[in-house]
Design a protein around this nucleic acid. Structure first.
Length: 1154
RNA sequence: GCCCGGGUGGCGGAAUAGGUAGACGCGCAGGACUUAAAAUCCUGUUGGCAGUAAUGCCAGUGCGGGUUCGAUUCCCGCCCCGGGCACCA
């Protein structure tokens, strides 16, 4: 009993020493019990919204790097509260995503369960640090109450289109109104490249056709596209989730494959995303990254005509060689051409279908859908031709001249073509454009008559493959005609330097360009196929890591340079990317270094068309890529400067109808499908293969339970196996889920009204909180999250749901806190127990010494040591033997050595003053992560020093935006500072501060107000590290003065409170305040206390400081000058040289020039 | 290759409308208190040279130039480190 009493007296009664563990828990509980951080949605105070990028709750918990930004934002939030703002400072969790799912796959635990556990852990850790979050506003993206609204926003995207005329998103119903009244001509006028249709055509479309067409306009749409497929993760990845051809998560290989995916039309916002950057206070580096990512470039699109070699006017003789059979059944089975030829023709057929001529389009509307009682196909392959229309059962081909066969010289070609098709047993009938356009019904009737007299030798189903009434009729798996050049007579390119067109001496297409097979000549086919194969086999990763090698292949075909009229060869090469521009370039080797390298390598002509002002450019050794200069060798452009020439050539191209000014973006539409389980389900069902929204009343579409979380690997998500869930009365559900960034693209809005179950947030609340005043987070989100959240914000603004076009007015990127990894060396041999011996590795000479015996050429490698087995003593990192027993299961299996250096002691075990054995090892700075054993848990720091010390120390470490390695060395200093502060308040037995109410001295006031000013200034400049040092100076100076004045020490606590809220609250209460410090008014800075009467001037002679002299600040120059010149030391340094100049900068410096 | 940052003591870092370089903290050294340790406090700490010392002199903010009475700060030319983008026509 007695011992117990003594113990109590020692620990609870004596408050003369700072005891963070006790006071921090007390105040955290108090704040929670009193709802001290609850935020109201309306107030007479001005609003301020501080937001952190919410964390993904991983199983590893928080490490000391996470709180860096959170502490900074907490400081700003608390400061603003002292300054009289109504501050919103919420926290939540970005809880959908891969790690939880991967974990579920491994353990079978439902991701929702592990996520909830992780979140609980995170919240505990966050609360330990004393953050002032209003937890009532917490959001979790995986909560159905939250993702209901993510789905709802998706519905709005699906139901909207982008109107380029007014430059905003509008409801899709307004678009269908326009289509039914005027077709899509005006909508298309702003650069859309969708096929044109009239109101009548629109109205004649079936529901399915209309829906299909609308997908070309919706903000959320389905499309086939090349995507980053990661088989290992079983999902597609966004571009920013792929680094060097490997997945960012896991580092698995990623491949480009074609898949049908959901996309969000972020490209519609490209310009606004770009230009609005100017209006927000984000760092230049980050804005620059977004600008580059959007990659806007102005230039021109130009059409080059392909020259068709004469020989190609006569069709490929293959049908003849096959023997003229009258029956396709005999010759080609059910096909009208061979698979091989279809492969060749496919791109043209597709292209032609996409861009029918007016006459073709009109006629198709009259023939399609079995309107004449027989099925017609358009742009169909027959033998080695693509014919305009074919009715296979009737063996009838209908061609409309005009698009590509209207020139006189093509007449002969047409006749030859007719002849060849007839040999295959078809009847060919031709109409002119004019006939179709002027008398469409006459034409239709004529076809009908011919059909009536046709033998209908092949009924559908009697050998000819039967097809559905859907797109598969025109599907790519069904073959058409052959021969090259068929219909391909132009290639479009994009160039930012149209002014250099006179120097375009060849063209280069991407190997994947769809016209490549068509323009390849028979002689070059083998080579080209080989090259395409080569390019396809190289993964993205190969392409990146490889030193840029010049490779390419000639197609055998030429195009005409439209300005010079010269034929120029068409090549393919993988330096041209299929995904950018048109996938084809006009190569100007004289003025593009890539084209130059290519031309040099393959011996292609190089023509100089731009020179500098003095005409000193010589392009014999390198290209002249500069964007200013004067045009030469360019006919009409000669003498113009580059920018004038651009304008002139675009005008010329437009006049000739072969080009136009164009703006290209690097930004792609955002892929929005993931073939995974742990994400938001789409509010979509399919009917007849077309997507429809589920009714809003069915939201949220909740994520069902599944047996297995494993992706199927064939591109289907685990949801696809749930037939009961997939099949609904209204259609089949979409089984993909949304990507990780869906939920994070609007969460800042949900915090404004997190419990609302009728809207994503009420209008009242979004109008009050508007957007984030200060957003803190890592710069790694620059081109992902931060672009998407801006996109969604603009969209929600367009549809009238929020009053702002940007999510965050100001954004700060906090730096990363890196881990310090100690390491030793191991020999690459079978694992052995740790050796404590006089053994070492001489890395430089590749020699290993084991117990005195040297071995040469032994392979060694670095071995990470757990952070926990080392201590930092002075500048040494010591690896202690005593920690090995605790950690041995983590590092067993390696023979460890330290590196050999000059200092021989470094590879031996030594004994410290306590007799503990250690070895000095080296360290490396890397990312802090569980797998690297270098994680430092903030809980440990809090347990040892308290939350206030951790908060101050993280801020004291250096500028917020700078990355730095975690180093515990300095934390003691901060802890000592808080101890000194505590002592100033003379806390007695009764836990009360014993302070004097005497008036403070001017000196004391000066110290206080200096600190007030510094605190306020530094928060505005986010220079938290210098504020902490200002606090230290202040406390040092007040301690020196033994200041115990209430009028000094109370205001000081308010300054400190944002940084160290627990101790500030404790001392505030100890001073006798009953109101709590959180809402205390921030002390007003009074500059009068800082006014000085005199200044101790550094006096320098010729710029070198030699003497200090004190003068009144209001002393006039002559008085000072006389005194300075009379000074003994000054005279000594003047060395009797005449005075040249006397410089006095008031309150700064005096300089005597001799 | 291009675009952003950034190079300051043994260490983290202060100070830039040009005006005493190295605040503050760590570490280190010495000292006080203590039987001792811990804790706490005090002093010193950019380097070199000279001096018993107080102190003095010289050099010094990645390197080389320039502007200026005066440059860590501005200008020109390099070097190195970190980050981003990467054949974007």
């Amino acid at each position: 009993m007695r011992i117990f009493a003594v113990y109590l007296a020692k620990n609870n009664g004596d408050m003369s020493n700072y005891n963070p563990q006790e006071i921090e828990k007390k105040w955290q509980k108090h704040w929670k019990d009193t709802h001290a951080y609850k935020v109201a949605n309306s107030s007479t105070k001005p609003k301020y919204y501080v937001l952190d990028m919410f964390p993904y709750p991983s199983g590893a918990g928080l490490h000391v790097g996470h709180p860096l930004g959170y502490i900074a934002s907490d400081i700003v939030a608390r400061y603003k509260r002292h300054k009289g703002f109504n501050v919103l400072h919420p926290m939540g969790f970005d809880a959908f995503g891969l790690p939880a799912e991967q974990y579920a796959i491994q353990t079978g635990q439902h991701p929702a369960v592990t996520t909830a556990q992780n979140i609980a852990r995170y919240k505990e850790q966050l609360d330990n640090i004393g953050f002032g979050y209003d937890w009532d506003r917490e959001v979790q993206t995986c909560d159905p109450e939250y993702y209901k609204w993510t789905q709802w926003i998706f519905c709005q995207l699906f139901s909207s289109w982008y109107d380029k005329t007014t430059d905003k998103a509008r409801p899709i119903s307004e678009l269908t109104d326009i289509f039914s009244k005027e077709g899509n001509a005006t909508v298309n006028a702003h650069g859309d490249e969708n096929p044109v249709f009239t109101a009548a055509e629109w109205n004649a479309k079936s529901e399915e056709e209309q829906q299909q067409t609308l997908l070309n306009y919706r903000m959320a749409y389905l499309a086939n596209s090349m995507v980053n497929w990661c088989p290992e993760l079983g999902t597609v990845l966004a571009n920013e989730e792929v680094k060097d051809g490997l997945s960012e998560r896991g580092g698995y290989p990623v491949f480009r494959v074609n898949m049908r995916q959901w996309f969000l039309r972020i490209t519609a916002y490209a310009d606004r995303l770009l230009f609005d950057l100017d209006a927000i206070d984000w760092t230049d580096a980050l804005k620059e990254q977004q600008r580059n990512w959007i990659g806007r470039s102005e230039g021109a699109s130009i059409v080059f005509e392909v020259i068709e070699p004469l020989s190609d006017l006569t069709p490929n003789p293959s049908p003849k060689e096959r023997g003229a059979n009258n029956s396709l059944n005999n010759e080609l089975g059910w096909q009208s051409t061979t698979a091989e030829e279809w492969n060749t023709l496919k791109p043209f057929a597709r292209e032609n279908r996409k861009n029918p001529t007016k006459a073709e389009g009109d006629l198709w509307d009259l023939l399609r859908d079995n309107k004449l009682g027989a099925r017609f196909r358009r742009q169909h392959a027959i033998g080695n031709f693509i014919v305009d229309f074919a009715c296979l059962p009737a063996m009838l081909v209908v061609e409309v001249d005009g698009k590509i066969h209207n020139e006189a010289e093509n007449k002969e070609y047409d006749e030859g073509r007719t002849h060849e098709i007839e040999k295959l047993g078809f009847k060919v009938v031709r109409f002119t454009n004019q006939q179709v356009l002027e008398n469409p019904y006459t034409v239709r009737d004529e076809i009908k008559n011919i059909l009536a007299t046709s033998p209908l030798s092949l009924g559908e189903g009697s050998g000819v493959r039967s097809t559905n009434d859907d797109a598969s009729t025109e599907g790519d798996n069904f073959p058409p005609l052959l021969g090259r050049g068929a219909g391909v007579n132009k290639i479009e390119v994009f160039s930012t330097r149209p002014d250099t067109i006179y120097g375009a001496t060849f063209m280069v297409l991407a190997p994947e360009h769809e016209l490549v097979p068509a323009i390849t000549t028979a002689e070059q086919k083998t080579e080209i196929d080989k090259y395409i194969d080569y390019a396809a086999k190289r993964s993205e990763r190969d392409r990146m890591s490889e030193v840029k090698a010049v490779t390419g292949c000639f197609t055998g075909t030429y195009a005409t340079n439209p300005l010079t009229g010269q034929p120029i060869p068409i090549w393919i090469a993988d330096y041209v990317l299929a995904g950018y521009g048109t996938g084809a370039v006009m190569a100007v080797p004289g003025h593009d270094s890539r084209d130059y390298a290519f031309a040099k390598h393959f011996g292609l002509p190089i023509v100089q068309v731009v020179t500098d002002k003095n005409n000193t450019i010589n392009i014999d050794t390198e290209s002249f890529d500069a964007k200013d200069g004067v045009l030469i060798n360019s006919d009409i452009l000669n003498g113009l400067n580059v920018s004038e020439a651009k304008k002139a050539i675009i005008a010329k191209l437009e006049e000739k109808g072969i080009g136009k000014g164009k703006i290209n973006y690097r930004l792609r539409d955002a892929g929005f499908s993931r073939q995974r389980y742990w994400g938001e389900p789409f509010p979509i069902v399919y009917r007849n293969g077309l997507p429809y929204l589920v009714d809003e009343s069915e939201l949220p579409v909740t994520l069902p339970q599944v047996e297995s979380y494993k992706p199927t690997g064939d591109g289907n998500s685990p949801l696809a196996a749930l037939t009961d869930w997939v099949n609904t009365p209204n259609g089949q559900r979409e089984t993909n889920t949304m990507p990780g960034w869906a939920g994070s693209s609007w969460y800042f809005l949900r915090y404004m009204d997190p419990k609302n179950n009728t809207e994503f947030a009420s209008k009242e609340n979004v109008d009050y909180w508007e957007n984030v005043d200060l957003y803190l987070g890592g710069s790694e989100h620059a081109t992902g999250h931060l672009l998407y959240v801006r996109f969604w914000t603009k969209f929600l603004y367009d549809i009238g749901k929020i009053p702002v076009t940007e999510p965050a007015k100001k954004l700060i990127n906090q730096g990363m806190i890196q881990g310090v990894t100690p390491f030793a060396y191991s020999i690459l041999v079978a694992p052995r127990p740790i050796v404590f011996s006089k053994s070492f590795i001489d890395i430089k000479n590749n020699v290993v010494t084991l117990n005195g015996i040297a071995y040469e050429n032994v392979e060694t490698h670095k071995v990470r040591l757990p952070f926990a087995v080392v201590d930092f003593v002075g500048s040494q990192c010591r690896f202690y033997k005593k920690y090995l027993s605790e950690k041995s299961n983590e590092i067993k299996g390696f023979t460890l050595f330290s590196i050999y250096e000059e200092d021989e002691s470094r590879y031996f075990w030594e004994k410290d003053e306590n007799g503990d054995e250690y070895m000095v090892v080296d360290t490396e700075v890397e990312k802090m992560s569980k797998s690297k054993w270098n994680v430092v848990n903030p809980d440990d720091m809090v347990a040892k020093y308290g939350a206030d010390t951790l908060r101050l120390y993280e801020m004291f470490l250096g500028p917020l935006e700078q990355s730095k390695p975690w180093n515990t060395n300095g934390i003691e200093g901060v802890y000592r500072f808080l101890g000194k502060l505590w002592k100033l308040y003379n806390i007695g037995e009764d836990s009360k501060a014993q302070l004097s109410d005497d008036a403070p001295t001017p000196e004391e006031l000066k110290i206080l107000h200096k600190t007030i000013k510094k605190t306020a200034d530094d928060i505005d400049g986010f220079s938290f590290n210098t504020t902490v040092s200002a606090f230290m100076i202040c406390v040092n100076e007040l301690s020196q003065l033994k200041c115990n004045k209430r009028q000094i020490l109370e205001p000081l606590l308010v300054c400190l409170s944002p940084y160290a809220p627990h101790i500030a609250e404790e001392l505030w209460a100890a001073c006798g305040n009953t109101n709590g410090i959180l809402d205390a008014e921030f002390p007003k800075f009074n500059p009068e206390y800082l006014v000085e009467n005199t200044f101790s001037y550094p006096v320098s002679i010729n710029g070198k400081t030699r003497q200090q002299m004190e003068f009144a600040l209001d002393a006039d120059q002559e008085t000072i000058k006389a005194a300075v010149l009379a000074n003994e030391i000054v005279q000594k340094w003047m060395e009797d040289k005449p005075l040249k100049k006397f410089i006095l900068v008031k309150g700064r410096i005096i300089n005597v020039v001799v």
